[in-house]
Design a protein around this nucleic acid. Structure first.
Length: 698
DNA sequence: TTAGGGTTAG
C-alpha cells in the first residue's frame, strides 16, 4: 500500500515549540487526546526520532489514533500499519474498525482476508468488527462465510459475536436466520434483544417488534432508548397510539425527551397515528432539528394528506442551514403528486438536479410517480429511462400511471419489458396491469392476467384484483356476467366490488342490478354518499324521476351527507382551491363571469346542459345554474383566463367527474383549443379536440 | 479494543 506520511520536518520540533509539551516518559502519552492531524504528526515524528516506535504497544496506540480517533482518511493509518514488523490480531482489529467507521467496509474485508492469509489468528474482537463491516455493505455472502469461520474458530457461542450476527442477518433481510441465532443463544442481554428488534424494524415486521418488546418487559430484561425508538416506529406503522403514548409518557417520566432521535421517532409515530398536530408541537419544541427530524415531519404531513402543509414546511426548512436529502425529497414529491402540483414538482425536480442529489431508486420512483400522477406521462417515462437502477416499485408506478391515464396498451408494453428484464411483478403490479386492460378494453387479456398471476407468479388475487375484473366486465357491458362473477368469487365481495358494478350499471343503464348493488353496499357500508348519487342518476337516466328523488330523500333521511366537490388548480406555483358554488376565492366575481362566458361559448357550439343530473342536483329553481358551478367548471374557467392560449389546463378533484362536467370539458377543449387534464378520484381524463382519453367510460 | 436506534414512493 502506498506510503503517505505527512511528516513535519524535524527542524520544527524545537524544544521550545513541541518537545516540552510531552511528558518525560513517552509511554504515558495519551495519544488519543490528539485533536488534530498536526498534533499526531508531531508525536509521530518524535516517536521516530526517539526510536520509540519500535515498541509495539506504542506503535499500536499511534495506529489507533490515526485509524479511529482522528476523522482523517485511512492513508495515514495505512502508512503506520505497513511499517509494523509483525502486526498482531489487535493491530488488524484496529485497521478493520477504522475502515468500517470510515465507510470503506470493502477494504476492511480485504484486510481480513490478508490477515487470514498471513495466518494471524482472529481473536474474539475480530469477528464483531469484521461482521459489522459486512453488515455495512449488505455483504450477506461474505458474512455467511465469516459465520462459518466463526464456528470453526470456536467463537460460535460468544455473546458479542452472536449479537453482531443477529445484526448482520437482520440488516441483510435474512430475518429468519437472525431469529435462529437469537433463539439459539443461552444468554441474551439488552443489545441482543435490540439487535433482533432492529432487524424486525428493518424488515417491516411491526407486530414482531411489539411482541418482542412485551417479552422484554415480561422477562424483566430492561430496555433503553434504542429499544423505544424501534417500538415507536412500529407503533406508527401499526397505528398503535396506546402503546405509542405509553412510550411517550415513559420517556417524559425518565427524562429521555432530550434525546433527538427519540423525539424524532415520537414525531413520526404521532403523525402516522393521525395526530399530526401533536407531532408538529413536538417538532417545534426540538431545539436542534436535523434532516431526519425535518423529513419525518414533512412525510407526516404528506401521509396525512396535508400536502400544502408539507410543502410549506419544506420551504421553511430551506431557510435553515439543514440540507434536505433524497428522503426529504421523496416526501416533498409525494405531496406534489397528491396535490397534482405539477409546477411545484417540476421546480423540485430542478432543485434535485441543482443540488446534484443522487437519483436513488426511491427518489427516481417518487419522481416518476409524481409526473404520472400529474398526468405528465412523457416526463415520467423520461425520468424512468434515466434511472440508474429500478425495482419492482419503479415499474409498478409507471405501469399504474400509464393505465390510469388511459394508456393501457403502453402500460402492458412496459409490463412485458419488465418481465424481459427479469423483474418479478408483485400483487400491486398486477393491479396496474388489470387497470390497463380495463382502460384499453382488453377484456380477454385481463382475464388471462388474472389466471396467470396465481398460476405463473404465485400471487393470490386479492379482492382488489377481483374488483378490477368486475370493472373490466362492466366496461364491456357484460353486467349480468359481472354480477355472476361476483357471486362466484372465492372471496366475500365488499362494498367496493358492488360499487364498481353500480358504476357500470349507471353507464349501461341497468336499473335492476343497480338496485341490488346499492342494497348490498348499504348493508356493508351505510354512510357512503356517492352510491346514492349513482343510483339516483341511473333512475334519472331512464326517466324514473320519482325513484331518483326517492333515493335522494332516502339519502337525506339516513343522514348520508354528500361529499363537497373540490377542485384544485395550480397557477405559478400557487394552488387555488374551488368548491361547488363557493365564493371564497378573492376573485370570485371574475371567475363566475368567466364561467358564464365559457358556458355561453360552448352552447354556441352545441352544448346542452345534462338535464338528468342537473335536475337531481338542483335545489328548487336554479337547476341549470347549480351544475354550472361545479367546482371543476370554476377551476377550468379560472385556468382559461389566467393562462396564455394553448397552455394545458390541469385540474385535480376529489370526486368522480359528473356527466355534465365531462361534456363541458370536452367541449371546452375543442372550442378553446386547450388540452385539459383532470385528475379525478378514480382515474385521469385527458381532454383534447372534444374527446376524452377515457372514451366516455369512467 | 467488542455489539443495537429515527425519516422515503405503489
Amino acid at each position: 500500500m502506498a506510503l503517505s506520511l505527512p511528516l513535519i520536518p524535524a527542524k520544527t520540533l524545537t524544544a521550545t515549540t513541541t518537545i516540552t509539551q510531552f511528558p518525560e516518559n513517552p509511554k504515558t502519552l495519551n495519544l488519543k487526546q490528539c485533536k488534530t492531524i498536526k498534533e499526531l504528526n508531531q508525536i509521530h515524528a518524535h516517536l521516530i526520532k526517539t526510536r520509540l516506535l519500535h515498541n509495539p504497544r506504542i506503535a499500536q496506540t499511534l495506529l489507533e489514533s490515526a485509524a479511529i480517533v482522528l476523522p482523517e482518511p485511512m492513508n495515514y493509518a495505512i502508512s503506520i500499519f505497513d511499517k509494523l514488523e509483525e502486526p498482531d490480531s489487535s493491530d488488524y482489529n484496529i485497521m478493520i474498525r477504522g475502515f468500517t467507521s470510515k465507510q470503506s467496509a470493502n477494504e476492511a474485508l480485504i484486510l481480513f482476508k490478508e490477515m487470514c492469509e498471513r495466518s494471524v489468528q482472529p481473536d474474539e474482537f475480530t469477528f464483531p468488527c469484521i461482521l459489522k463491516a459486512c453488515s455495512r455493505v449488505h455483504g450477506l455472502k461474505e458474512g455467511m462465510q465469516i459465520h462459518g469461520h466463526v464456528m470453526k474458530s470456536g467463537f460460535g457461542s460468544n455473546g458479542l459475536v452472536q449479537n453482531t450476527l443477529i445484526h448482520l442477518y437482520g440488516n441483510c433481510g435474512e430475518i429468519g436466520v437472525a431469529r435462529h441465532v437469537f433463539d439459539a443463544m443461552s444468554e441474551r442481554n439488552v443489545i441482543t434483544w435490540n439487535s433482533m428488534i432492529a432487524g424486525y424494524t428493518r424488515s417491516g415486521c411491526w407486530e414482531e417488534v411489539v411482541e418482542l418488546f412485551r417479552n422484554m418487559i415480561e422477562m424483566d430484561v430492561g430496555f433503553d432508548v434504542v429499544t423505544l425508538v424501534c417500538v415507536l416506529t412500529a407503533c406508527g406503522r401499526l397505528a398503535d397510539i396506546d402503546l405509542g403514548e405509553w412510550v411517550d409518557e415513559y420517556a417524559e417520566a425518565n427524562g429521555l425527551k432530550g434525546n433527538p432521535t427519540l423525539v424524532t421517532s415520537l414525531v413520526d409515530m404521532y403523525a402516522k397515528c393521525d395526530r399530526v398536530e401533536t407531532a408538529r408541537r413536538l417538532f417545534d419544541q426540538m431545539p436542534q432539528k436535523d434532516v431526519v427530524a425535518w423529513s419525518a415531519m414533512i412525510s407526516g404531513y404528506s401521509q396525512a394528506n396535508q400536502g400544502r402543509e408539507a410543502l410549506a414546511l419544506f420551504h421553511k426548512m430551506r431557510k435553515t442551514n439543514v440540507e434536505p436529502n433524497e428522503v426529504t425529497m421523496v416526501s416533498v414529491l409525494s405531496s406534489c403528486a397528491v396535490l397534482g402540483a405539477l409546477e411545484t414538482g417540476e421546480w423540485v425536480h430542478s432543485y434535485i438536479k441543482k443540488k446534484r442529489m443522487k437519483l436513488t431508486v426511491n427518489l427516481g420512483t417518487a419522481l416518476v410517480d409524481f409526473y404520472v400522477k400529474c398526468g405528465s406521462l412523457e416526463s415520467g417515462i423520461e425520468v424512468f429511462k434515466k434511472m440508474p437502477s429500478r425495482n419492482v416499485l419503479s415499474w409498478t408506478v409507471l405501469i399504474q400511471g400509464l393505465a390510469s391515464n388511459g394508456q393501457g396498451k403502453r402500460a402492458i408494453e412496459f409490463f412485458n419489458l419488465m418481465l424481459e428484464e427479469n423483474i418479478k411483478p408483485n400483487d400491486v403490479t398486477f393491479l396496474g396491469v388489470l387497470c390497463a386492460c380495463n382502460h384499453a378494453g382488453l377484456f380477454d387479456e385481463g382475464r388471462g392476467f388474472l389466471v396467470s398471476m396465481s398460476r405463473d407468479f404465485d400471487i393470490e388475487p386479492r379482492i382488489e384484483h377481483y374488483g378490477s375484473m368486475v370493472d373490466i366486465l362492466g366496461r364491456a357491458g357484460l353486467i349480468e356476467e359481472a354480477y355472476q362473477f361476483i357471486k362466484n368469487m372465492p372471496i366475500e365481495p365488499n362494498a367496493v366490488i358492488w360499487r364498481t358494478l353500480l358504476a357500470s350499471c349507471k353507464i349501461h343503464k341497468n336499473v335492476e342490478i343497480g338496485e341490488e348493488s346499492l342494497q348490498n353496499i348499504v348493508r356493508l357500508e351505510p354512510a357512503h354518499s356517492g352510491d346514492y348519487v349513482l343510483l339516483s342518476n341511473i333512475y334519472a337516466s331512464v326517466g324514473r324521476w320519482e325513484d331518483a328523488l326517492r333515493v335522494k330523500i332516502q339519502m337525506k333521511d339516513t343522514g348520508v351527507k354528500k361529499t363537497l366537490g373540490c377542485s384544485l388548480i395550480e397557477l405559478d406555483g400557487t394552488i387555488h382551491e374551488f368548491f361547488a358554488e363557493d365564493n371564497l376565492h378573492p376573485h370570485s366575481e371574475e371567475i363566475y363571469n368567466a364561467t358564464e362566458d365559457m358556458i355561453k361559448q360552448i352552447k354556441l357550439a352545441g352544448y346542452v346542459p345534462n338535464a338528468a343530473e342537473a335536475r337531481l342536483d338542483a335545489e328548487e329553481d336554479n337547476k341549470e345554474a347549480y351544475v354550472s358551478y361545479h367546482s371543476e367548471k370554476l377551476a377550468i374557467a379560472f385556468g382559461l383566463i389566467r393562462t396564455s392560449p394553448g397552455t394545458t389546463i390541469r385540474i385535480s378533484k376529489n370526486l368522480r367527474v359528473c356527466t355534465d362536467c365531462h361534456n363541458v370539458t370536452k367541449m371546452v377543449s375543442k372550442v378553446f383549443n386547450r388540452e385539459i387534464v383532470i385528475r379525478a378520484r378514480n382515474r385521469f381524463h385527458h381532454f383534447k379536440d372534444g374527446a376524452c382519453s377515457c372514451m366516455d367510460y369512467w
